[in-house]
């Protein structure tokens, strides 16, 4: 049969290798009470199998890396184990963050992280629907979600919140709230990333050499910033900011490469924003 020759591009397994795994899972799910199921359910189960196989491929030390291709059923089992371990790791990380967690009055951050994430773990179905992210993850972290889903998406999200909390914890609550308030009086209701707002303010202050207490830019500061106008200036500003971030993470965060990589994500955007406003009257509003 021609369709037997078809291969699932993502998993690298032929459909005929995946079907026995699907049949076994379907039997397990229906508890031998039903010999048939709707297309939608069968598709969901096939999605679960492919998700687990991808998880197994992604897990360190799997057979594919060493060049040996394991049977689909075995890869699926390894994947199930990898998913379970990832769930456990993510729960552990979540509980590490929670006691010191600070939402700075941002309702979206509170609802997504404090109320939403536990609901995910409550409803997450590792066996039949591990690819379901369940949550819409409304609070935007700085790292784009991309194509990840299920526990992958949640794990990446919790890691991002961990890094954001780590960064913000080094600043006083009053300073963070002042920055947010000055950026928008409606900051509690805004669906925006708190860390990016604070990071922008911090980087600007470090560039002009002003302390966190100072709220006005001097004439000298403004002149300094005009150097960063235009495409070239923007690139220069971005490089300067990246250098500052490296030093900052080295000095205050134990040279965490994860934090440095995460804080670098919005830097080009921040540089572009500052560069655009550097020459005009708005310069006085740059500091929050």
């Amino acid at each position: 049969m021609e369709m037997n020759k078809e291969t699932d591009d993502q998993s690298g397994y032929k459909m005929e290798e995946l079907l026995p795994v699907l049949a076994e899972l379907a039997e397990k799910v229906s508890g031998c009470e039903s010999s048939s199921m709707p297309y939608e359910k069968a598709e969901q189960l096939m999605g679960a199998i492919l998700y687990c196989i991808r998880e197994a491929e992604g897990a360190a030390g799997n057979a594919l890396i060493t060049g040996e291709k394991l049977p689909a059923a075995e890869m699926y089992k390894l994947g199930c184990k990898a998913v379970k371990e990832k769930v456990e790791r993510t729960i552990q990380r979540y509980h590490e963050i929670l006691p010191e967690f600070e939402d700075y009055g941002n309702r979206c951050l509170h609802d997504t992280f404090v109320l939403g994430i536990p609901e995910f773990f409550k409803w997450y179905d590792m066996q039949t629907n591990p690819q379901n992210t369940i949550l819409t993850l409304d609070y935007p972290v700085m790292r784009e979600r991309g194509k990840s889903c299920g526990i992958d998406a949640i794990s990446e999200y919790v890691d991002a919140i961990y890094l954001e909390q780590l960064f913000l914890s080094d600043f006083s609550r009053e300073y963070v709230l002042r920055v947010l308030r000055q950026q928008s009086s409606d900051y509690r209701e805004l669906i925006q990333n708190v860390t990016e707002v604070v990071l922008e303010d911090v980087l600007l202050r470090l560039i002009v050499g002003r302390s966190l207490d100072q709220s006005e830019l001097t004439q000298e500061d403004r002149e300094q910033l005009t150097r960063y106008q235009g495409a070239e200036g923007r690139k220069k500003l971005q490089n300067t900011m990246e250098g500052i971030l490296e030093k900052m993470t080295d000095q205050y965060y134990g040279a965490s490469p994860d934090l440095l990589a995460y804080l670098n994500i919005p830097v080009s955007g921040i540089a572009a924003r500052i560069s655009c406003r550097a020459g005009d009257a708005e310069i006085k509003d740059l500091l929050y």
């Binding site: 699907l22 049949a23 379907a26 039997e27 010999s35 048939s36 199921m37 709707p38 297309y39 939608e40 069968a42």
Partner: peptide, 17 residues
């Protein structure tokens, strides 16, 4: 019938039953 009802049978069919 399975196609019309958008269902799929695994292993044993219901017909003998």
């Amino acid at each position: 019938s399975l196609k019309e009802q958008r269902r799929v049978e695994f292993g044993q069919s219901i017909l003998p039953k």
